[in-house]
Design a protein around this nucleic acid. Structure first.
Length: 326
DNA sequence: AAAATAAACAACCGCTCATGC
DNA sequence: AGCATGAGCGGTTGTTTATTT
C-alpha cells in the first residue's frame, strides 16, 4: 500500500547502540514511560528510528531481562514449545519470563537447531530441518485456532491429571533469584546494558502511568519481571486480558514444564499473561475440550513424563507426534 | 602470531495486525 | 468502510568474538 517507512533513511544511525545512546533512551523512558516510540527519536535527539528504539528497549534495556546461558529447563521449554507452536517466538517467549523473543530465536537458531539435528542425523535417514519446517502450515487463522485449542486442552487436562486437587500449582515455586542463571559477563557492550536497566530503578516513581508501571517495577524489584514484549514491554499491559482463568491456565502450563523461575505471584502472572494464554481464555469454555482427541495430549504427556524422569529429552522427543499435532 | 573460519548475537527489514480517525 | 499510523513479529543480515589452522 506504499506505506512510508517508519523513519527516514537519511540521518538515521544504524548498528550497535552506544552506552550514551542507551542512557539517553533509558532516561527518556524513565521520564515519560515506554510508548509513543515515534516521538522518542525527536524528543531524545537520538539519531535512531523509532523502531530501533523500541527494539533496543524491549530486547535489552527494559528491566527484568535475563541474559546469559539458558537453563536446561528453558531449553527444554523452548524445544517443546517450538514443536508445539512453531517459530512463533513471541508466543514462546511469553512462557519464558525474562527472555525475549529475539533471544529465544537466536538461541534456537544457533544452538538448539543444531543440537536436535545432530541427534536426529544419528538415527534417521532423512533428518528434518527443525520442527517447524516439517509442519504443514495451514492458513494462519485456522492453524492458530487449532493450536490454541490444542494447547488449552493440553493445559487443562494436564492440570487435572497431574494435580487435580491443587488450586494453584507449586506453592514452593518461588523463583530462585539469581539461581542457576547467574549472568556471565560477556565482554561486549550489550551486557552492560543490564546495568543501564538498573538505572531505571525508581523510574516508575516519575512515570506518568503509575498503575501500570508500579506492578512492572514490583516485578523488577523481585528480579522476576516476567513480562515479555508481547506483554506490555512498553509499560502498557494488555488491558483486561488477564484474569483468574488465564492465571490458572497459565499455571497449568507452567506446571507442565515445571518451570522453576516463574514468579507465581498473581500480580506477576497476570501481568505477564501471554497473548497466547489470553487467547486460551476464549477457548476455555468447558466443552471445547471435547473437540479434540486426547491422544495428542497423551503423547505429549508421555514425552514430558520421560523427560521429567531424567531421560534425555532430545533423544526421546517425539518429533513426529508433536509435529503432527497440527 | 596472524589469518581463516565458525559461532554467537545484536540489529535491521519488511510484513501484518490493531487501532483511531 | 477506508485510510493512516503505531506497534509487534519473524526472518535475515551484519558485526563481533572465539576457535582453529
Amino acid at each position: 500500500m506504499g506505506r512510508p517507512p517508519c523513519c527516514d533513511k537519511e540521518g538515521v544511525k544504524k548498528g550497535p547502540w552506544t552506552p550514551e545512546e542507551d542512557i539517553l533512551l533509558v532516561s527518556y523512558i524513565q521520564e515519560r514511560g515506554p510508548g509513543n516510540w515515534r516521538a522518542v527519536p525527536t524528543n531524545t535527539g537520538l539519531l535512531r528510528c523509532s523502531k530501533s528504539c523500541r527494539l533496543r528497549w524491549t530486547n535489552y534495556l527494559r528491566p527484568g531481562i535475563k541474559r546469559g546461558n539458558f537453563t536446561d529447563h528453558e531449553e527444554k521449554m523452548i524445544i517443546h514449545l517450538q514443536a508445539l507452536l512453531g517459530n512463533r517466538w513471541a508466543a514462546i517467549a511469553s512462557y519464558l519470563p525474562q527472555r525475549t523473543d529475539n533471544d529465544i530465536k537466536n538461541y534456537w537458531n544457533t544452538h538448539l537447531k543444531k543440537k536436535l539435528k545432530k541427534l536426529q542425523t544419528g538415527s534417521e535417514d532423512h533428518p528434518r530441518e527443525g520442527f517447524s519446517v516439517s509442519q504443514p502450515m495451514a492458513p494462519r487463522g485456522q492453524w492458530e485456532r487449532r493450536l490454541q485449542t490444542d494447547i488449552h486442552m493440553a493445559k487443562q487436562a494436564l492440570s487435572e491429571a497431574l494435580c487435580p486437587e491443587k488450586p494453584t500449582y507449586l506453592p514452593e515455586l518461588k523463583p530462585s533469584i539469581g539461581c542457576s542463571n547467574t549472568i556471565p559477563a560477556p565482554s561486549t557492550y550489550a551486557s552492560s546494558t543490564e546495568n543501564i536497566a538498573r538505572l531505571l530503578k525508581g523510574w516508575v516513581r516519575n512515570s506518568p502511568k503509575p498503575s501500570q508501571t508500579n506492578s512492572f517495577m514490583t516485578q523488577n524489584s523481585l528480579n522476576n519481571m516476567s513480562g515479555t514484549d508481547s506483554v506490555s514491554s512498553e509499560g502498557t499491559p494488555t488491558p483486561s486480558k488477564a484474569n483468574d482463568k488465564d492465571l490458572i491456565a497459565s499455571e497449568a502450563f507452567d506446571f507442565l514444564f515445571g518451570f522453576e523461575s516463574f514468579d507465581t505471584s498473581h500480580s506477576d502472572t497476570s501481568q505477564s499473561m501471554s497473548p497466547e494464554a489470553s487467547l486460551f481464555q476464549d477457548e476455555s469454555k468447558p466443552d471445547s475440550n471435547a473437540l479434540l482427541p486426547l491422544s495428542l495430549l497423551e503423547q505429549w504427556l508421555f514425552d514430558e513424563g520421560l523427560a521429567s524422569q531424567g531421560k534425555d529429552l532430545l533423544s526421546d522427543f517425539a518429533l513426529d507426534d508433536n509435529a503432527n499435532l497440527f
